[in-house]
């Protein structure tokens, strides 16, 4: 497949267009020429709004979307399951439960701890899932069922904790649905290092994941250590999902939808899939946050609600089309 380069360029253009809209829209509207002049530092009027509020929010949304999409791609590659994604398998739910519990137990804890707690929660919930679903790891629908039930339990526990120990409402909404409300430059270090480390890891694993697609036996005979590869790829996926949770809560369905769209666009090989998937995730998340603000200004919805509007019907569509029951 050589389609990935033009496809990536096209997606990049789409992302830039959405980003421009995202930056220009809000209580103070910035027209495209003004936006350009502000970015070129020729017009100081809007600089504070742009660099103080909208730019960090945009960057965070794009990075979170990219991280979730890549995480979904890896999970789907490893368990060879079109219904799998970090949120359906309960990983993001577990990570947010851990963070909620942590921020209740230790109010005013330093922000630097949050990603570590999220990571611990993500790994723990993955462990739970793999243990509970031991006998059905190769049956996609059953694995998804256990994951969905696990997510329901985590969501119930979050509801329970937030009712007993109410947080401030906007931070509560972040942990209930996922939102990029009020994210600023200080949240950037929570996710950027993970992406810098984990994207190359994913790229290194890409070729072996292609082999895994041929089946365990073929992959082994071609010299892949299947169980080690699976573990490494899953750990990478969980780390990506947990990092995104530590910034803006459990955003649903981006990790499910983006890899499917990417496969539709550039086929099944993982190496070209990675950049396309990253871009698609960023576009999905930026546009979701955009629509969350455009729908009924000045009120804004959490971005997680908008992704659910797109993702839940798509999940149902996948189920109705899925034939290997």
């Amino acid at each position: 497949m050589t389609r990935w380069l033009p496809m990536s360029v096209t997606l990049m253009v789409v992302l830039v267009l959405f980003s421009a809209w995202h930056l220009g829209f809000g209580a103070v509207k910035i027209s495209p020429p003004d936006l350009w002049r502000t970015l070129m530092h020729q017009q100081p009027e809007y600089e504070f709004i742009l660099y103080g509020y909208r730019m960090p929010r945009l960057v965070i949304a794009a990075l979170v979307g990219a991280a979730l999409a890549l995480s979904g791609l890896l999970v789907q590659g490893v368990v060879r399951n079109p219904l799998a994604s970090p949120d359906i398998l309960g990983v993001t739910g577990g990570a947010s439960l851990a963070v909620v519990g942590f921020s209740i137990a230790w109010t005013g804890a330093p922000v630097a701890w949050v990603p570590i707690v999220a990571l611990a929660g993500g790994f723990a919930s993955l462990g739970c899932l793999l243990w509970l679903a031991r006998p059905v790891l190769n049956q996609p629908a059953s694995l998804a069922l256990v994951g969905v039930a696990l997510s329901a339990l985590f969501a119930a526990a979050i509801d329970f904790l937030l009712t007993l120990y109410p947080l401030e409402i906007n931070s509560s909404l972040i942990w209930l649905t996922g939102s990029v409300w009020g994210r600023n430059w200080s949240h950037l270090p929570l996710i950027v290092p993970w992406l810098i480390i984990l994207i190359p890891v994913a790229a290194l694993l890409a070729y072996r994941l292609d082999l895994l697609n041929l089946g365990d036996a073929t992959a082994t005979s071609l010299g892949t250590r299947v169980s080690g590869l699976r573990l490494l790829a899953l750990l990478t996926a969980v780390a990506l999902a947990s990092a995104s949770v530590s910034v803006c809560g459990a955003i649903s369905f981006v990790g499910l939808v983006a890899p499917h769209m990417a496969r539709f666009l550039v086929g099944h090989r993982h190496l070209p899939l990675i950049p396309v998937c990253l871009l698609l995730g960023a576009i999905l998340m930026v546009s979701a946050d955009l629509f969350a603000r455009v729908l009924m200004p000045p009120i804004e919805l959490p971005a997680g609600i908008v992704t659910a509007f797109i993702g839940a019907p798509y999940f149902v569509f996948l189920i109705t089309r899925y034939k290997h029951w």
Binding site: V148, L173, L301, F309
Partner: peptide, 26 residues
């Protein structure tokens, strides 16, 4: 197929839940 119904139901449940949240916030 029992699992299929449950997965469809759970997804729809999640969709309605999100819409309710959205309606209340708006």
């Amino acid at each position: 197929h029992p699992v299929r119904v449950v997965l469809a139901g759970v997804a729809l449940n999640f969709l309605f839940l999100s819409m309710t949240r959205g309606a209340v916030i708006l």
